[in-house]
Design a protein around this nucleic acid. Structure first.
Lengths: 123, 123
DNA sequence: CTGTATCCTCTCTGATACTG
DNA sequence: CAGTATCAGAGAGGATACAG
């Protein structure tokens, strides 16, 4: 049977919440092609702050989507990469991106129509 | 070429934002099997307030995912249903749900491990 | 370089009461 | 029945400064 979408603690909800947060998808997507260091990720995602990057990475690491490797060097080096689970999820994210790119035109024209109608009927 | 995921106004971002909001996925999912009235939706989604339901429906309608039909009767009747675009998106949502159900066990054990390690190393 | 610690704002969300 | 209006709380996210 299907999970109960209406329960706040439903698996679907949790996955959706993660996908919905501001940076997780971007970070996972950035790591899709290989491991990167903290600074390397920050450089590719415009606008992310160190705090949010760390916070996002911790959440992904906790969920088993990202693995973190610390090299005992001076200066310290820390690399992040996707786990098998993370790679698996990337596939789904790509489909979402594809859908967005394929249908964004429809969405935008729908918005224009809607806004035009709303403006026309404004009292 | 791919869209620029790193831009805040990227199509992917907008779709992701909608999926991430609290009620949109639930509402779309509820409408997947057929049209429903305002009260009918509210009755199936436990915890949603009239205000949030209306707000969510307006957003979905604006994006062309849901269509709204008003019947000039007494008392008034308003029905909501998915557009073709909405039905298309439901397919993707189902895959997300399937992924969640398949892998939630992995995620949960990863969390347990992570939390156990964090507790063990707490200063 | 790789984070951590504060503070602060802003949006989302909910509770409540009211209208056509 | 199907909303709308208003107020208020909570929490995510951002700016900034600092530490190992």
């Amino acid at each position: 049977m299907r999970g109960d979408l209406y329960a706040a603690d439903c698996p679907s909800r949790q996955v959706l919440d993660r996908i919905g947060d501001r940076w997780s998808v971007l970070v996972v997507s950035t790591l899709a092609d290989g491991t990167l260091r903290h600074g390397g990720i920050a450089g590719r995602i415009h606008g992310i702050t160190p705090k949010m990057l760390t916070q996002t990475l911790r959440g992904l690491e906790r969920d088993g989507l990202v693995h973190r490797t610390v090299y005992a060097e001076v200066p310290p080096r820390v690399e992040y990469g996707l786990t098998d689970l993370g790679h698996d999820l990337v596939g789904l994210m790509r489909r979402l991106e594809d859908w967005a790119e394929t249908h964004i035109g429809d969405v935008e024209s729908a918005r224009s129509d809607y806004d035009a109608r709303a403006t026309a009927s404004r009292k």
